[in-house]
Design a binder for these strands. Structure first.
Length: 590
RNA sequence: GGGGGCGUAGAACAGCCUGGAGUGUUCGUCGGCCUGUCAAGCCGAAGGUCGCGGGUUCAAAUCCCGUCGCUCCCGCCA
């Protein structure tokens, strides 16, 4: 049926008869001569047809699926198209066969128009024909292929773990699947293969990986869907650096495959404390400076109330220099409002004047020495705008870090800035003052003594990998001692009875000679997204869902028969029943 | 659960602030012309519940309220 892919035809085929098959990207009918751009998975080639010999050309429209047999020839002098890979040749059509006609399209199959996403998802199969989306699919495939190859070469075993597992209420909300054989009971879809991969370590696998589909029933974001794919990896007799080394090797290989560049190794490492202190984020974007500075050192005796209160209550004053820019009142107000959204009580701004003095609503409350020290600490040059926050350390850096990201983040995606954030806190304080895990409850503390004596400031053996300010994934050295695991549950306030009921099977496994082990998982969707220059993982997921969890093409999720529900022992609430009997939304065109 | 943006012909937009006849542009569709285009060109035509509902007004795409959908963010996401 087909002798060549479009871009497999070159100078060497001139004079030969070929058959290509694909879709009509464009038809340009000049009356006495007609051009067809035929697109297949490899690219595009131009077919030239004589309408007198092939009257059917007049009936061809965009996206008809056709095959064309003809002779390859050099394009006439002056008609080459340097934009096309096949721009120096063309096929003189001898036979054109319509394999399948196409209706008028709901939107154009090209990368120039930005069609409403609902329409794109409604006709995703057409959307995926666009070069950008086709390239994203290919990139994703190349990424997973090179990841598998890299890990295979290092002796990793790819093992599949179940996707119908037991529900554990910690962490994200589980996606639940009702059991028919045991009405009233539920499976959960895995949020990650965490415990199963640890069991594989106990099983003696030593080096495991899986490209694993994971599910979390939480609200959507540009980088979050209900289901996503991660590279999951674990190794026995491993410490942190073994994990970082293995993960770096696959990330570097993926970047090489998709971008053709060598990322220098090892990636820079920042401790969590340093990342927060300098960038106000545990996933800092280090492609630009604008670092947070401590400006409190020369404000000991300040009379300015806002600073004074913060410093006397154990807080601090931090600042960033956001560089020279227009500074109308409206902008100052907008940033102050944004700072409040991020948790600050307010925002102090200062503009460095041409003579080096500082213009600010609060300048009159600060001494000349204090103003100079603030300016010097932030390297203020004439024209620069300085932003200051006074509060608890974490509030200060979080607020300024949030502003920093929004003000400084570069638009392009050519630079790749990988880094490790290490030494995360073991626990976080919840709103009610109780402790909760910051990574997951199977993460090993750096020091048992520290965990016992001062759990609130204990450091964990957990680490994240960050690319351009996006958290790709995280991992940790795991607890392999059942006694330590029990202590952690205790500190987390999970009493032993509950721990036994939920994790007893796992705690039991730990008692049978568990090797020290460590691992990691990173999101393949997010990695491919960044490498492809996309800002949403939906662009690298073939069939994603909208923000309300709907697939506009299939209509999922849908109601099911009452019989099905009865088999599962499920009764709908009156609220759900009311939704079911509501008339279809009038705005829905389908 | 909360905040912001958007919704106008099959597609992408302008019009909305400051109310006055469904007005305009590009692509697509249909008809016609056209022998070197490559986002072909030229002529013509069809195509509209301005998301939906309510309100204000002599008059609403435009102002107000509600609602639905899409989207970005906060919460949430071990």
């Amino acid at each position: 049926m087909r002798s060549h892919h479009a871009t497999a035809i070159g100078q060497a085929e001139i004079g030969r008869q070929v058959t290509v098959a694909g879709w009509i990207q464009r038809r340009r009918d000049h009356g006495g001569i007609a051009f067809l751009d035929i697109r297949d998975a490899s690219g595009i080639i131009q077919v030239v047809a004589d309408p007198a010999a092939h009257p059917e050309v007049g009936d061809l429209r965009m996206e008809f699926c056709v095959s064309v047999t003809g002779t390859v020839r050099r394009r006439p002098e002056g008609t080459e198209n340097p934009e096309m890979a096949t721009g120096t040749i063309e096929i003189g059509a001898e036979e054109i066969t319509v394999l399948s006609a196409a209706e008028a399209l709901p939107f154009m199959i090209d990368d120039r128009t930005d069609t409403d996403e609902r329409a794109r998802l409604r006709y995703r199969y057409l959307d995926l024909r666009r070069p950008r989306m086709a390239a994203n699919l290919k990139a994703r495939s190349r990424a997973t292929a090179v990841i598998r190859r890299t890990l295979d070469e290092q002796g990793f075993l790819e093992v599949e773990t179940p996707t119908l597992i037991n529900s554990t209420p910690e962490g994200a909300r589980d996606m639940l699947v009702p059991s028919r054989l045991r009405p009233g009971e539920f499976y959960a879809l895995p949020q990650s293969p965490q415990l199963f991969k640890q069991l594989l370590m106990i099983s003696g696998v030593e080096r495991y990986f899986q490209i694993a589909r994971c599910y979390r029933d939480e609200d959507f974001r540009a980088d979050r869907q209900l289901e996503f794919t991660q590279l999951d990896l674990e190794g026995s007799f491993w410490g942190r650096d073994d994990v970082l080394d293995a993960i770096e090797s696959v990330l570097v290989a993926a970047v090489g495959a998709l971008r053709g560049v060598d990322v220098p190794r090892p990636f820079p490492r920042l401790t969590w404390t340093e990342a927060m202190d300098r960038y106000g984020s545990d996933k800092p974007d280090t492609r630009f400076g604008m670092e947070i500075r401590d400006v409190s050192t020369h404000l000991d005796g300040t009379e300015f109330g806002v600073f004074k209160v913060a410093l006397e209550s154990g807080g601090t004053v931090r600042g960033i220099n956001i560089g020279a820019q227009e500074w109308p009142r409206s902008r100052a107000d907008a940033l102050t409002e944004r700072a409040r959204e991020l948790g600050a009580k307010g925002l102090v701004w200062m503009v460095v004047e041409a003579d080096g003095s500082l213009r600010s609503p609060v300048a009159k409350f600060l001494s000349p020495d204090e103003l100079i020290s603030v300016k010097d600490t932030l390297d203020g040059e004439p024209g620069d705008v300085l932003l200051l926050a006074a509060d608890k350390w974490k509030t200060c850096v979080t607020v300024l870090g949030g502003l920093r990201t929004e003000l400084g983040r570069p638009g392009g995606h050519d630079d790749l800035s990988f880094l490790w954030v290490i030494d995360f806190p073991l626990f976080e304080e919840a709103e009610d003052g109780s402790l909760t895990f910051s990574h997951h409850p199977f993460t090993s503390p750096v020091s048992l003594e520290e965990m016992r004596d001062d759990p609130r400031s204990a450091t964990s053996n957990a680490y994240d990998v960050v690319l351009n300010g996006i958290e790709l994934g995280s991992g940790s050295v795991r607890i392999h001692d059942p006694a330590v695991q029990r202590q952690v549950f205790e500190i987390l306030g999970i009493d032993s009875e509950i721990a036994e009921r939920r994790f007893g099977w796992f705690l039991e496994a730990l008692r049978y000679g568990t090797p020290p082990h460590a691992g990691f998982a990173f999101g393949i969707d997010r990695l491919v997204m960044v490498l492809q220059g996309e800002v949403s993982i939906r662009e690298v997921i073939p069939f994603p869902k909208t923000q309300t969890g709907v697939d506009p093409m299939t209509g999922a999720p849908t109601w099911v028969d009452d019989n099905q529900l009865a088999e599962l022992g499920i009764t709908m609430t009156t609220e759900a029943r009311a939704r079911q009997t509501e008339p279809e939304t009038p705005s829905d065109p389908d």
